[in-house]
Computed example of a mutant assay.
Amino acid sequence: MTQAGWYPDPAGQPQTYRFWDGAAWSQETTSDPYAPPPPPRAAPPPPAAPRPPASSPSQQPPTVVAGGAGAPPSSYGQVPTPGYGAGTPPAPGGYGQQPPYGGGFPPAPPTGGSGGSAKTVLLVVAAVLVLILLSAGGFFGVRALTGDDDDGDNEAGDSTSATDSATDETESSDPTEESTATDGTEGTEGSTGTTAPPSTQCTGGIPEPSVTPRRNAERISGGALSIPIPAGFKPEVLFAPAFAWADDFTPLVRTVEENPEAQTSWFSIFGVGGLRKANGFDDPATAAEVVMTCMIESPDQYSDVSGRTEVSSGEITVDGTDAYQLTVEIRVDNADLETEGDIAQVIVVDMGDPDMFGLYISQVPIGDQELLDLQASMVDRILVD
């Protein structure tokens, strides 16, 4: 026979307990499973007819069915088994079913209406955290997660060359030629046919933004530059570490494409920050080319790169300040996504600071005219703070 004690109310009321005396349920209820038993009921008058046999449902607890609302279960994982002194919890370590938390009420049973709400909240929170991590993780392999290209894939084709008539004009400052880094180490040949900059340039920054953007902010700032927040974009500081060459980099992010089955996503990004001159960035033109190469070669930014083609380059002014811009088409070959690659723009601003250049980066998908128009208009909206 089931032991007498307080059990979850079979009527299904959340966080409510009713006393089972071994033969019947009490009229009284409580919210405290450690409460003393209710006073015994007055003995009923003698029956007019013989009492039913002991096996009668009125005298025996109904058969327990998992999840049902009959008699209390003989052992319920979330409710202490009665039997010890009223109001006296079991000794530490001596009760295997004790809820793993201190104080408060044990959760109501799963079939008791809202008893699963706490677990649901935890699951929702966990799901949100997973989505955040997946989103960030999707970018940190981005732009596709399947690994680097083979060098042989980029040995042929005009699209693999970073040189054209525009780069010929700036050949004297082209860092794609074989060069020696400031620390004496030589650059290495990258997967797109360019010379990869030394690691001190591609990973020498402190990209995490110094100030977290306000929720209702209209602009973001970084490295003494600022840009407005376009519709559909929002600041995502978790993406900043992927821009490892920059300092104080604040990115604006918009999801362009998602493939949940492959856990792969593509994002459009606008961001501003700084570029430390001590890391070998001597002039805006050279710095723009080095940053573009670092971005293409970074496993946290692109994989499966199939080609690079320069779109435009040259000196410009940003908010009345001298700067240099480089725009490149970056193509990728990823079967999990329809996006073909990015039109990426790097602008390095010479603000006269002896230690730092200003840095602006934008990445928008090839063929997305809305975002291409935004990219073109954003340059005139950069401010030097």
Rank of each mutant, 00 (worst) to 15 (best):
T309H: 02
Y360Q: 11
R143D: 06
F140I: 07
V379I: 14
I382A: 05
T339H: 00
A288N: 10
I316W: 03
T88E: 12
P99H: 05
I347E: 02
I330H: 00
Q98C: 03
P40K: 13
T167W: 08
A144C: 11
G147V: 13
T16Q: 03
G112F: 10
G113T: 14
T170C: 00
P46L: 02
T185D: 14
E177L: 09
Y34V: 02
P175F: 10
K119G: 10
E177I: 02
A11H: 00
S58E: 13
V142D: 06
A376V: 11
A240Q: 00
P72N: 09
D183A: 07
S159C: 02
A144E: 00
F140Y: 13
W6D: 12
M351A: 12
G222Y: 08
N279G: 04
P47H: 12
G141A: 12
A242Y: 04
G320L: 15
A335G: 15
A156H: 06
S173Y: 15
A126S: 14
A71T: 00
E289C: 09
T180W: 05
D153E: 15
T160V: 14
W20I: 01
T309G: 04
T185H: 14
D283P: 09
D168K: 12
P207L: 07
N216H: 06
W245K: 07
T286Y: 09
P235V: 04
V305E: 00
P198H: 05
Y76A: 06
I269R: 08
K277D: 05
E289W: 14
W266F: 07
G274P: 14
R143P: 01
P365L: 11
P92A: 03
A4S: 10
V305F: 00
V364C: 03
V291E: 13
G314D: 08
L252M: 11
P46M: 01
R215A: 09
G193Y: 09
